[in-house]
């Protein structure tokens, strides 16, 4: 049963990576920018939740705290677009990469000032509960993470593919000027997407904090989420989740079955292999420029 335990914990971890990757992919789809601070965004979401919900801080009821966290994170996402990203539209990709990395630094700094640098975890009703299924014991937290992630991915997938707003977002990313001419409110659409990605980061943060402890450097797992997004192909939402699962599952198995020293490089090695053989991910969307 050891195998299943590893598998489930891998899947649960993978879901968190997948959720962060969803954030990258959404923003990339709609604005062609890549948010290197998405991991730190998640870290901030976790801390905001702890700040609202934990008895050491405000100690609000669990449900209220969740709603407040998502509102705060959504607003934060919108503000980041409004105050920063909107002003650098059309700058080089390097500038946008640097901007979001710098944003991550600032978020880590601010989180450190507000919540301190020692690891904290979220007090939650699921803590310690277990689910027994056919002889396998699963942590309730893990089950919750998996269910929420799948529901969210499915919801977002349909939102992007089927609704008018979702399609408008894709149009806005592919040709801003043409989208303007077609009467799509490009700026509002982008602001909305950033807010949405803030909410997703908030959900990822809450899930992460129920599973383990958070400190200001937690956001660095965003790098693994990157690997996930790339493996899944940067433009695909289900791909992002799939990539997250691949990374999440590889990790516990690598550390169990591979010699020490090799196990932690497995996700990055996989990322490089994918990039070398399928340069733009498994679901490629890049073509050569037309002249």
């Amino acid at each position: 049963m050891d195998f299943f335990q590893l598998l489930v914990s891998g899947i649960a971890n993978g879901c968190v990576y997948g959720l962060i990757a969803l954030g990258f992919v959404m923003i990339y789809k709609a604005t062609e920018a890549v948010n290197f601070a998405q991991g730190d965004f998640m870290m901030l979401g976790a801390f905001v939740m702890i700040g609202f919900g934990n008895s050491g801080y405000w100690g609000l009821p669990f449900g209220v705290a969740i709603v407040l966290t998502l509102v705060v994170m959504g607003a934060l996402g919108y503000l980041i677009d409004r105050l920063l990203l909107r002003r650098v539209a059309g700058e080089s990709q390097t500038a946008i990469i640097i901007l979001t990395i710098a944003l991550g630094f600032v978020m880590r700094f601010i989180a450190g000032i507000i919540w301190g640098h020692s690891p904290q975890s979220l007090e939650n009703p699921l803590a310690g509960q277990e689910l027994r299924l056919a002889g396998i014991t699963l942590g309730m937290e893990d089950v919750a993470v998996i269910l929420v992630t799948v529901a969210l991915t499915v919801g977002l997938f349909f939102f992007f593919g089927r609704t008018k707003l979702g399609l408008a977002m894709q149009a806005a990313s592919q040709n801003q000027l043409a989208a303007y001419y077609m009467g799509i409110p490009v700026k509002r659409v982008q602001g909305f997407i950033w807010a949405l990605s803030g909410v997703v980061a908030g959900i990822a943060g809450i899930l992460f904090a129920t599973k383990g402890s958070v400190d200001p450097t937690t956001g660095l797992i965003g790098i693994k989420a990157f690997a996930a997004a790339v493996i899944g192909g940067f433009g695909s939402l289900p791909g992002a989740l799939l990539g997250g699962l691949v990374i999440g599952i590889i990790e516990p198995f690598a550390s169990r079955y591979m010699p020490a020293g090799y196990s932690q490089i497995a996700p990055y090695a996989l990322l490089l292999i994918v990039l070398v053989f399928r340069p733009s991910g498994l679901f490629s969307q890049l073509r050569n420029k037309k002249v």
Binding site: A102, V106, G112
Partner: peptide
């Protein structure tokens, strides 16, 4: 001593520059 201060300030300088 404020941990992370250096990177925090560095990040803010960068954001200011890019904007």
């Amino acid at each position: 001593a404020i941990p992370g201060l250096e990177f925090g300030v560095f990040g803010m300088i960068l954001i200011a520059f890019i904007l």
